[in-house]
Amino acid sequence: MKQTSSSKTQATSDDEAPALSQADFDRAQLRVAGKDVSRAEWQAAVRARVTKQRIDIMLDTPIIEHFKSLAGERGYRTLINDTLRRVIETGHLEADLRQIIREELRSATHD
């Protein structure tokens, strides 16, 4: 079995991930959007993220077939939802990076 972590904890099942103890979880750094947060803030962010709302939406048949072929046991609706979430998160990251670069360029020209 290949060890994938420098942790001294050994894998206990057929997968390659080491078993985690309560001490591992106690040492965890909780972050939301890359910022350190308290356990209460982290829990609130997790609860907010998993809130779901039922909607009716029409999708093209090839799109549904594509996601069904990728999803397997997981469920294609979950895969579509995760894909849309990643697109949104990536868009925010791109906008934030562009803003930071603009600010840095402005401050560099004023030095």
Rank of each mutant, 00 (worst) to 15 (best):
E104G: 07
E65S: 10
A40I: 03
F67R: 05
G91A: 14
A44C: 12
T90K: 04
D36I: 00
H92I: 06
D26V: 09
L20A: 15
A108T: 12
R85F: 10
I88S: 10
T109E: 13
Q53E: 05
A28P: 06
E89Y: 07
Q3N: 02
A19D: 09
A28D: 07
G91Y: 05
R106S: 14
Y76V: 06
S7P: 02
D15E: 12
E73V: 15
L93E: 12
K52M: 01
R102P: 01
L97Y: 05
I55F: 02
V46W: 05
E89R: 03
R86F: 11
A33Q: 08
S21Y: 02
T109L: 05
I63M: 14
A45M: 06
G91D: 12
D14G: 11
Q43P: 02
D60F: 03
D36H: 08
A11F: 01
I64N: 07
Q3T: 09
R54I: 00
D14M: 06
A71D: 03
V87M: 15
A71P: 00
A48T: 03
A44E: 12
A108V: 07
S7V: 04
P18C: 04
V46T: 06
R98C: 01
A23M: 13
R77I: 15
K8A: 11
F25I: 09
D26N: 11
Q3L: 15
T9Y: 09
Q3V: 07
V87S: 14
A45F: 08
Q10I: 15
I88R: 13
A19Q: 13
P18Y: 00
R49C: 11
N81G: 11
D56C: 12
K35A: 05
K35T: 02
D82C: 14
L30W: 13
T109A: 08
Q22G: 02
G91Q: 14
R86M: 08
P62S: 07
K8S: 14
Q53I: 04
V32D: 05
T4Y: 10
Q43T: 04
